[in-house]
């Protein structure tokens, strides 16, 4: 199926008659990528499901105001990232738990989840990721799983490319040490 260009989506969205059609095209093009991005942050499928709906409602409300000074994808990505971080922060505040315990909760959610069927390596990788600071985990996910360029990640997070590179490589080192300590080899 041929991917629709963002410019075509935006043009159709600006027209009341084709607005709904444009939004459906947008969903077809980006919903899975955005879902997986959110899911890797919040772990639980139901939480990711709630968040993705909230994200695209926000996209619907604000797409008219979207300025083409950034890519459409990175704009949607940024909304999804902010919503996910806000969700995790609210979770911390609601339970009055420090950050380490939220990571522990997410790790337990991973273990208990019926929607995780990864092998030992994938499970250990997720456990390793949950030991990272939130922002470092976010940057790693975007670089490793979504294969975004540093410039795109910089647009999304507002962090400089140099800082992103440093953060990513530190994250890789930590994951490597974690995996080795868990006797995970390839």
């Amino acid at each position: 199926m041929k991917q629709v260009e963002d410019s075509e989506i935006l043009e159709k969205f600006s027209n009341e008659k084709t607005k709904n059609e444009a939004f459906n095209l947008l969903l077809q093009k980006y919903q899975q990528k955005i879902y997986w991005h959110i899911r890797r942050l919040v772990i639980d499928h139901d939480d990711a499901d709630d968040l993705i709906q909230e994200v695209f409602v926000k996209v619907w409300k604000n797409l008219e105001k979207f300025r083409s000074d950034s890519q459409l994808y990175t704009w949607i990505y940024r909304i999804a990232t902010n919503e996910s971080i806000t969700f995790l922060n609210k979770k911390k505040q609601r339970n009055n738990t420090p950050l380490e315990e939220v990571s522990s909760e997410l790790s337990e959610s991973l273990v208990a989840s019926s929607y995780f069927n990864g092998d030992k390596v994938q499970r250990k990788l997720q456990e390793a990721l949950l030991t990272l600071p939130e922002k470092q985990r976010l940057i790693f996910n975007m670089k490793y799983f979504d294969d975004l360029k540093y410039e795109e990640i910089s647009e999304i997070t507002g962090t400089s490319v140099g800082a992103l590179k440093a953060s990513f490589h530190i994250a890789v080192k930590k994951i490597e040490v974690f995996m080795l300590n868990e006797d995970i080899t390839f």
């Binding site: 879902y35 997986w36 899911r39 890797r40 499928h45 929607y115 995780f116 069927n117 990864g118 092998d119 994938q122 499970r123 990788l125 997720q126 490793y144 799983f145």
Partner: peptide, 8 residues
């Protein structure tokens, strides 16, 4: 890589 073990 994409799903990293997560399913829906």
């Amino acid at each position: 890589v994409e799903t990293a073990g997560f399913i829906t």
